[in-house]
Design a protein around this nucleic acid. Sequence first.
DNA 1: CTCGCCCGTGTCAACGATGTCAAGGTTGAT
DNA 2: ATCAACCTTGACATCGTTGACACGGGCGAG
Lengths: 375, 375
Amino acid sequence: MSRAVTLRDVARVADVSAKTVSRVVNGDAHVTPSTRERVQRAIDDLGFEPNLVARSLRVGRADAIGLVVESLADPFFARLTSAVEQAALERGLAVMISSVGDLPDREAVVVRSLLVRQVAGLIVVPVAETHAHLEDPRQRTPVVFVDRRPDGMDGDAVVVDDLAAAETATRHLLAHGHRRVGFLGSQTRNPTTRLRLEGYRRALAAHGVAEDPALVALGAGTAQTAREAAEQLFAGPQPPTAVFASNMRCSLGLVPFLHSSGRTDVAVVGFDDFPMADSLLPAVTVIDHEPEAVGRAAAERLFRRLAEPDVPAETVVVPVRLVQRGSGELPPPAGTTGPRGADGGEDDPGRTTDAPVQQDGTREWEMAQEGGGRS
Amino acid sequence: MSRAVTLRDVARVADVSAKTVSRVVNGDAHVTPSTRERVQRAIDDLGFEPNLVARSLRVGRADAIGLVVESLADPFFARLTSAVEQAALERGLAVMISSVGDLPDREAVVVRSLLVRQVAGLIVVPVAETHAHLEDPRQRTPVVFVDRRPDGMDGDAVVVDDLAAAETATRHLLAHGHRRVGFLGSQTRNPTTRLRLEGYRRALAAHGVAEDPALVALGAGTAQTAREAAEQLFAGPQPPTAVFASNMRCSLGLVPFLHSSGRTDVAVVGFDDFPMADSLLPAVTVIDHEPEAVGRAAAERLFRRLAEPDVPAETVVVPVRLVQRGSGELPPPAGTTGPRGADGGEDDPGRTTDAPVQQDGTREWEMAQEGGGRS
DNA sequence: CTCGCCCGTGTCAACGATGTCAAGGTTGAT
DNA sequence: ATCAACCTTGACATCGTTGACACGGGCGAG
């Protein structure tokens, strides 16, 4: 259990000052090659590794970023996390990760726990109802919001156009003749859910369909509770003939329920693609957005801000697309349909791009200046 | 952009020394109530938050643990990570995470990057071929291996009995009459894959079935490459009638391939449960082990070691069970079967527990002293 | 040749917290 | 009353690194 090797140890062996060793370690150009070589040899001989905690204290910032997500068990956030971690590693930054779970109040706690560790920046999936706990720290630590933006806060964000995407999904079902379209979501205090619910409502309104409160099931925070919410949705006297599952966990609860109860005739569109979606019968139609793309965009945005603290805030809108696989194109059972035929003419065949611009596969994203495009 | 509030600032306001503030912050009992109250008020007034980086430097350890997994995009590791993070949060520890991806050499890099940040301990899913890069640091930083144990290393570990589980899975297929059973796995330098392949071989041998190299497909590191490997498996003149997918990514590649090519008559047993497995037709039979249980057990083990560095190393074996859902019980097509009937008498009906002991739902795990149970 | 500049290197202090030790005060036992 | 033991509190050094600054020497410009 010998003490770790420090700069001073190296300095003694190389017969220079600690400062010079520091210069070599940090690749400072102002070191004579011969000195550099001597120091380097001492470093190698002793197996010196710089203590990043000490460095962090000295420079006032840890070389780590914090990531706060809703749930790591959700494959969407897991893949997002993976992309962030990847991008951070390329820049030599560590990633401290925290998940909030379904206790929104914990967001403030985990954010604080990251801030006291002096993270250089934060990427946050906002979950809490208010974000006052972020206002103050943002003066010192840049924050990039991802997946959604908290109410009334400006700043950098990487989002999808939830409202438009949800409206598209719902219109898709309506266009296939459904009039009793269910909505499955988590909490309305979750801004994402609220926006998606609003999109759902707009689609209904556009089609002149009155909203039936019995068709809106909320409280689906996990696959388990989503399943229960779905059960209730179908327990009523007039169950839906189609359902919009407004996030991956909802799909993961809804779809197994429909399968296990033999209701695979119900049309489904899910928000977020999920594993196996295209191997089910029918395969599940989804609104897809790549979590890796979202994660990477958020990380890049944060890095840019760390490099240039004073550039104006940007909102990156990640495109989504409707992937038609079958479940979303099921017709309603005879007798429940409205005036339109089952083959609604609203959608393009095949894969339809509903987002403002199509991703081109590189890292070019549509960028919108602050405030653009949100309602 | 005002400077952060420090101990000294609080000390000045409360008219005490910095040391006393430190005592209050750390709950030291030797402070007069009146002083404590005065200091506390100053802390609240100023909004003081201790700088954990400074504390870490002083005490020589960061209050964070490192977690190194193979891939966060794999839901198994994502859920494991979630459990570790949860357990760490309860103890006020941060979690720094790194994934290795499919470049085993990166393991040493990411481990190093965590060590220089002075993590108090590491939880590592071993991926690299050698773990010499861990030998030395382990003197200072405890390491718990999880999911598998690297060759020839002792120390704390939380594992599943890969060999026995894979043998069980393969026997299950053989018992249902299959004689051409395929194996889908990643790399044989991955100890997990090697053990599972060995289990597969033992099952074949036990049933007197000769191994056919054409039925062993390796190199499936991602769902995509797994799909390609599966395609090759079925491209040969004598394709398998059953396949053992030796990890989740393999299942995630194999199953969609079988579905999209209309080969849902092929029997499948997967290692690791995956989302939607029970909603597919046929539902997928799997060897299930709870990633949350594995993660939590690893975290608990690490915490115990941090508290008592000198207790002997322990290996925690997490139980697995075979979950029969249909795909693993499919009979071989007529004409390919051996002497046994389709309804092999080897397995119990319903859910079978193959691990040494059944988990009882609490945190009691079967503990094995070092060296027990591995071959 | 001299002045000034830059280059290589070193000295010193500081980042913000805490361990060590000691001072002064109080309490209790004799 | 006296002394020991204890309690509260503070001064100081220190964790390992880096920023600010200084110093001496070489070199180019005038």
